[in-house]
């Protein structure tokens, strides 16, 4: 209060306000943020001390902080399996494919949607693309099995009717990277394209108008206006996605591949391995240790990518 300086326009300069004044001034905005803030405190920050469980031999009665400290013992299991590298590799490669192809296809779809003239067709196709996102992974797994299984699958029934050899993807590990990426794209493209479609809608009509006056054709409009304006969205979504790059899509892999060891070489990710290996022994501590390992790598990935983005295009970096 004492150092209140007034500018020519009569407004208090932000830099000189006290913390309380800033809060008071932005009370409406802050109030609107409140649910999100509460959400993150309750579900992200408050449970943070629980990370400790990864370093103890957890005992129900003693609780997380009363249990015996065992150091890195819970991490040994991952290292001992001798599979950590392969699992991490699988997880990261799949996620890279999902992220890159997923965003690419989504951008293309969003642009195509934007260029459609018929409103009805646009809405219908958007909805059709959107629907798979809401199908439970369990059902997706069943669906895929009914399409592809050897004896009674839809695909094989057709192949046999056409006089061709039946196809056995469930005993052929080579085809799964492709299949899984296709399934994933089928599920998520609709959702992702809406995000991009929204930001295309956010492009200032005047710029497009001006380009048209200057004689830009459809391609030029896409190349010089739409794509550059999508760049920040792409970068931010990429940054978010990279944070989770060592977190596999358990639902998809577990339900589609199941527990078929013939396919593990190409389909086993950290989540599915840990699930199988620890289901028998129900060990909270080991599971948390794995989670922590994934989070740390995720954190590093975000920091590194953010750093790189900042070097190239400071405006697009997250922080």
């Amino acid at each position: 209060m004492e150092s209140k300086s007034v500018t020519k326009k009569g407004k208090v300069q932000t830099s000189q306000m006290t913390f309380g004044q800033k809060i008071w001034r932005n009370r409406t905005l802050l109030f609107m943020c409140l649910p999100a803030i509460v959400f993150f405190i309750a579900f992200s920050y408050a449970p943070l001390p629980g990370i400790w469980v990864a370093f103890v031999k957890y005992n129900y009665r003693d609780g997380i902080f009363g249990s015996k400290f065992v150091g890195m013992q819970n991490f040994e299991f991952l290292a001992q399996s001798g599979k950590l590298l392969q699992l991490t590799k699988n997880t990261i490669l799949y996620n890279l494919a999902f992220i890159i192809l997923g965003n690419l296809v989504a951008v293309v779809m969003a642009i195509l949607l934007n260029e459609m003239q018929s409103k009805i067709f646009k809405k219908v196709s958007q909805t059709m693309m959107f629907l798979p996102y809401f199908i439970s992974q369990v059902l997706v797994g069943l669906l895929v099995f009914n399409l592809l299984n050897y004896d009674t699958g839809f695909v094989n029934t057709i192949l046999v009717k056409l006089g061709m050899e039946p196809w056995g993807p469930y005993s052929d590990k080579g085809v799964w990277p492709v299949l899984l990426v296709i399934i994933h794209l089928w599920q998520t493209t609709g959702y992702n394209s809406v995000v991009y479609f929204a930001s295309i809608c956010g492009i200032d009509e005047e710029i497009v108008e001006a380009a048209r006056v200057d004689g830009a054709n459809g391609w030029q409009k896409i190349w010089y206006i739409i794509l550059p304006s999508l760049k920040p969205t792409v970068v931010i979504l990429l940054l978010f996605a990279l944070g989770g790059i060592v977190k596999g899509n358990f639902g998809l892999f577990y339900n589609v591949v199941g527990t078929n060891p013939l396919l593990y070489d190409t389909t086993d990710i950290i989540e599915t391995y840990v699930y199988r290996a620890t289901m028998t022994d129900f060990n909270f501590s080991t599971a948390s240790a794995v989670g922590l390992y994934q989070s740390i790598i995720g954190f590093l990935m975000v920091m590194i990518t953010n750093f790189i983005v900042k070097k190239i295009e400071p405006d697009y970096s997250l922080f």
Binding site: F77, Q80, S81, P261, L262, A277
Partner: peptide
């Protein structure tokens, strides 16, 4: 020895599924 047992179980499962069903 739990970490060993977990990994052994996993190996057993993976190989035995192939062996026990002749795959």
């Amino acid at each position: 020895i739990q970490a060993y047992i977990d990994n052994i179980t996993e190996i057993h499962t993976n190989y035995m599924k192939q062996i026990a069903f002749g795959k």
